[in-house]
Design a protein around this nucleic acid. Structure first.
Lengths: 347, 347
DNA sequence: TTGTAAGCGTTATCAT
DNA sequence: ATGATAACGCTTACAA
């Protein structure tokens, strides 16, 4: 069995009390240089490490934070997690990641598990299935620190970190309109998610500002994480087979964009010659995949960083916080070298 | 502040002792039905949850295991982690993931951090940079449970879970040879990694079995996670520009295969018409990406499951383990519908 | 059937 | 400068 050395062991070995050892290790001023040296060297030699669990119990905090996301196999989230980690590491926090796989039930279980005192706070991006948020509201009402990012909810008053989805979607749509396209389809994730609503609004606003009427049949929502490729393929098929088929697509998500590209490829529809495409994506691949693909990139890493900073502030603030920040970070649009060709004049 | 309810609170409120409450909550037989009911209902009402940290301290175990991988933004690893999670969840363990980003230093820090008693065991896949493994050896020698998977080391006697990389590579290479290709390049990750060595051996064996001489200049190793696209592009460029250029490529890794496909695409080299490609990949995309791409898929999910099962057995076994398993799971080869065309006759 | 007390590893508050 | 003790939340001998 693995039995690591404790302060007690050191005390016994050196004929000191545990308190003396503890103080020596923490470099207290009230310990003689000799004793300090003795203890520190012994600890060094036997590779003493304070037991973080005992510390957690004493300090009533675990110095770990929980991350609740739908999926880590997603460029946006893995980049956001990298941002989270980078800050956590420096501020002495562990990060515990849990995946909901877009399931409401699973999200609840994860949150319960994490929040029952094994983490000091939660960083949350809602699952696609989640439409009730009592499991967060209850915790938050009891004063448990929660920060939402990306897929947020308006029903809880706390810090939130989001990309400017409205503007990103507006720019993406405007980009297509500028290139002469007017029949622009919109692929998005579950309709009730904050990100979907904001992106839809940006899309609609760009259409409206250009006096293009909104066409309901151009909107395709895909809900489930696991089946996304199949769902997307169906959506794309129905778009390209429709009578008034779109000349361009705006896909509002990482997996959506990649899957759309794949589906189009499968159907032998060339991008951008047959149909133009602008999409949200954080994939390092998608930028390379199609040199004519204009991409809206979310500041995922920075969002993760900002979110955990706010969370740690929340956790470490002595007094209740009254003012909640909603941080909105700008998306970036990468217009590819060869850009999108002008739309062909209508026949 | 968030102050969850404790056994002490319940005891005080109900005029009982903490031990009675504790026993009632755990459904002990030596507690009267009345008391039990009283306690359980009170606990229910106030949403009592045992403090996992206190439990950890008492039981001298955290019921959490640490996962040390290079990168979660990798199809193989995210699938393996899903497998790990699926078992952990059922067996009552938390999973703490840490990424080395292929850095030796970072790996050491992560392991130190995790092992100093915040996890009960470690699931490890070595970073590409790691060539010394003292940080694991020290722990293992002290009896700390460690299971290696995927990128393993021979220097530590413990359970290991790997794919049959040799056979997978052999099959991939043979697949190309069967289609008539004889000039087969091999793209792989850091040369000293166990997976690279095994895959290389499989590749070499297939060549030898078919009386094809080994060509050193056909071997390209890529080391660093972060710069992999650039490295790959350079490797591919040098291959297609070499005087005795290969007619086929066997890429031995997920990112390698995708990046290779992208690089070839960028250089306007058509797969499989200009050059054939067979690659290891667990990407759900790559299968769709190029219908002529034959793919060797690792049983990532199952590997994760098996690895954590072994680890939990190790953790929960009362007596020292003397026999260590090396589990080898078979890879699957997916020959695409349109398959690889026969190589053109040499000019 | 229930209560008391010790212990898990650590630190803070008192002594001495 | 150092030691004894209590406390963090929980479980479990041991008493009652």
């Amino acid at each position: 069995m693995y039995e690591p050395i404790t302060i007690k062991d050191i005390a016994k070995a050196l004929g000191l009390s545990t308190s003396t050892v503890s103080r020596a290790l923490r470099g207290s001023h009230e310990i003689s240089a000799d004793t300090k040296k003795l203890v520190v060297e012994y600890a060094e030699q036997f590779n003493y490490r304070p037991n973080p669990i005992a510390l957690s119990l004493k300090e009533r905090r675990s110095r770990s934070i929980g991350v609740v996301v739908c999926e880590i196999a997603n460029n946006y989230f893995s980049q956001a997690i990298n941002g989270i980690e980078s800050v956590a590491y420096n501020r002495g926090y562990h990060v515990i990641i849990s995946q909901s796989h877009e399931s409401y039930e699973r999200e609840i279980v994860n949150v319960e598990h994490l929040a029952s005192r094994s983490v000091d706070g939660l960083l949350v991006s809602l699952s696609a299935e989640t439409d009730k948020i009592d499991h967060f509201k209850n915790l938050h009402d009891k004063g448990f620190p929660i920060v939402f990012f990306d897929r947020i909810t308006d029903e809880i008053e706390t810090h939130k970190v989001v990309a400017d989805n409205y503007q990103g979607a507006y720019n993406a749509t405007q980009h297509l309109i500028d290139a002469g396209y007017r029949k622009i389809a919109h692929l998005s994730s579950a309709a009730h998610l904050s990100i979907s609503i904001e992106r839809m609004n940006g899309y609609k606003a760009a259409l409206a500002d250009n006096k293009i009427s909104f066409n309901e049949s151009y909107i395709k929502n895909c809900n489930h994480g696991g089946m996304i490729y199949k769902e997307l393929e169906d959506a794309v098929r129905s778009l390209i087979n429709s009578k008034d088929k779109p000349t361009a697509i705006f896909s509002a998500g990482d997996k959506l964009t990649v899957s759309c590209l794949l589906a189009l490829n499968k159907f032998k529809v060339k991008v951008p010659d047959d149909i133009a495409l602008v999409g949200f994506s954080n994939s390092p691949l998608v930028e390379l995949m199609n040199p004519s693909l204009t991409v809206v990139k979310q500041p995922a890493f920075e969002m993760g960083q900002k979110a955990i900073e706010l969370l740690i502030n929340l956790i470490e603030s002595k007094r209740p916080v009254t003012e909640f920040e909603k941080v909105v970070l700008q998306t970036e649009i990468f217009e590819r070298n060869s850009s999108i060709p002008k739309a062909k004049p209508k026949k």
